[in-house]
Write a protein that binds this DNA or RNA. Structure first.
Length: 213
DNA sequence: TGCCAGGCCCTCTTTAGGGCCTT
């Protein structure tokens, strides 16, 4: 059994946002959220929804994501989607690739509707830098290809990216379990692993889990 | 008009700078 989390111990939400740009502090908004809910390491639910930010998106974002202004015009407003998504999160912990980015948008959109969430974030990118230090880079697409993870060729859409991040996350859990011959990995261990230095990571894991096989 | 972020890590560092990663 895989042990997760500090709040709801067995629930992890792998989340990905598509946005109008890089910074909510400069007026950027979320335009799509996708998420995969894991309980005890098994996918139990999914969430995907476009949302209308009330502003036009530029051509770069249209080309980058495939999400058009026409699509967003027909989408429900951000406030409605985020209210529903906050319910979906519940008190689970959260995982995202480069979590600092998704956390900023989640925080900003939740703030707009006066909602909050209890869970902690873990970053699959920072963790991957420790688990796969020799990867050519730690972009999501590279790690998916490197590990032959399931994908349908769709990138930069919220649910597709969340699905790939889910496979990456579970793959890293399994690689650590196999390498260190352990049965249980806590969410907090994965969080902490992403925060130790690259060279310290193996020793750090050994202290938590025993020596590698 | 042109430009615009933020958090984290690494190292030729720590009184800093540059690269990575996300849209």
């Amino acid at each position: 059994m895989i042990e997760y989390g500090n709040t709801n111990a067995d629930t992890v939400i792998v989340v990905d946002f598509e946005t109008t740009g890089m910074s909510p502090d400069h007026g950027d908004r979320a335009i799509e959220v996708g998420a995969v809910k894991l309980e005890e390491g098994e996918v139990v639910d999914r969430f995907q929804c476009l949302m209308n930010p009330g502003i036009r998106i530029n051509g770069f974002i249209e080309d980058f994501t495939g999400i058009t202004n026409a699509m967003l015009k027909q989408a429900p407003p951000c406030e409605e989607v985020m209210d529903e998504f906050t319910d979906f999160i519940g008190d689970g912990n959260l995982v995202a690739h480069n979590a600092s980015f998704d956390r900023r948008f989640l925080d900003a959109e939740c703030c707009r509707i006066s909602r909050n969430y209890k869970g902690d974030f873990a970053c699959s990118m920072l963790t991957a830098r420790r688990v796969y230090p020799d990867a050519p880079n730690h972009k999501l697409g590279t790690l998916v290809e490197l590990n032959c993870l399931p994908n349908d060729g769709t990138f930069h859409r919220a649910l597709a990216d969340a699905e790939m991040t889910t496979h990456l996350w579970l793959g890293m859990l399994n690689d650590i379990r196999r390498g260190y011959r352990i049965e249980s990995i806590s969410f907090s261990l994965m969080q902490a692993l992403s925060r130790v230095s690259k060279t310290a990571a193996p020793g750090f894991l050994s202290r938590w889990t025993g020596p590698p096989s």
